[in-house]
């Protein structure tokens, strides 16, 4: 099986978000614990990939609010905001008027923020759009968590030593044709430990 990468999941997420809302762009920030910053990881649409790797403080702006509270929101009129980051706009060539943002959250811990710039919201209504974006973020988060869990399991297998690890690795390779034998082994093991 081809191994799906972290970047592929993020790229798919931002593309799906942009297409779903017919938006000018969509981007995802992930929280970097070491720097305590939100890092721009992937983008789709206008200015795509121009800001990858840029970090912003985790307690500032709309992304900071969403990351801190886990609450999605829609805000219009950003273009008129004197505080809007003009350098950001100059880099991407995009000065959005509307930003919709949702947290990428797992068990109450925010891993990042998914933002959509200039979404076409009339077809949805704001709260339905928020709901949809939140589900997209949840799906991305679930995929990221599965990926991380898989990486951890592979790392454990690679590092494992001793009889338990040898047993685990043998069973990992057992296919359906070995089901009868595996059942006999489980029965024998159960007798051994009871």
């Amino acid at each position: 099986m081809t191994v799906i990468t972290h970047d592929e999941i993020l790229r798919s997420t931002v593309r799906l978000a942009r297409l779903s809302f017919n938006a000018a762009a969509a981007s995802v920030f992930l929280y970097d614990h070491e720097r305590d910053a939100l890092v721009f990881e992937a983008s789709s649409g206008q200015g795509e990939d121009m800001l990858i790797g840029m970090a912003i403080p985790s307690d500032r702006g709309i992304a900071g609010w969403v990351a801190n509270t886990g609450e999605p929101l829609v805000i219009r009129g950003v273009r008129d905001d004197e505080r809007f980051d003009r350098a950001f706009a100059a880099e991407t060539g995009l000065v959005p008027d509307t930003i919709m943002a949702a947290p990428i959250e797992h068990n109450g811990d925010v891993l990042g923020v998914l933002e959509v710039l200039d979404p076409a919201l009339d077809a949805f209504g704001d709260l339905v759009a928020i709901d949809l974006l939140t589900e997209l973020a949840n799906q991305s988060c679930a995929a990221l968590c599965l990926l991380l869990a898989d990486r951890r399991a592979r790392a454990r297998q690679a590092d494992a030593t001793g009889a338990m690890a040898a047993l685990g690795s043998l069973l990992e390779g057992a296919d359906a044709r070995r089901e009868v034998a595996v059942n006999e082994l489980i029965t024998a093991l159960a007798k051994l430990v009871r």
Binding site: L73, V74, I75, R76, G77, V78, D80, D81, D126, L127
Partner: peptide, 21 residues
């Protein structure tokens, strides 16, 4: 009232926002 609410925003401007907040 939580949808398309006109609100104060830092810098003296106003924004239109949505959310239970």
């Amino acid at each position: 009232c939580g949808i398309n609410v006109s609100v104060a925003w830092p810098g003296g401007s106003a924004k239109v926002v949505s959310g239970n907040s």
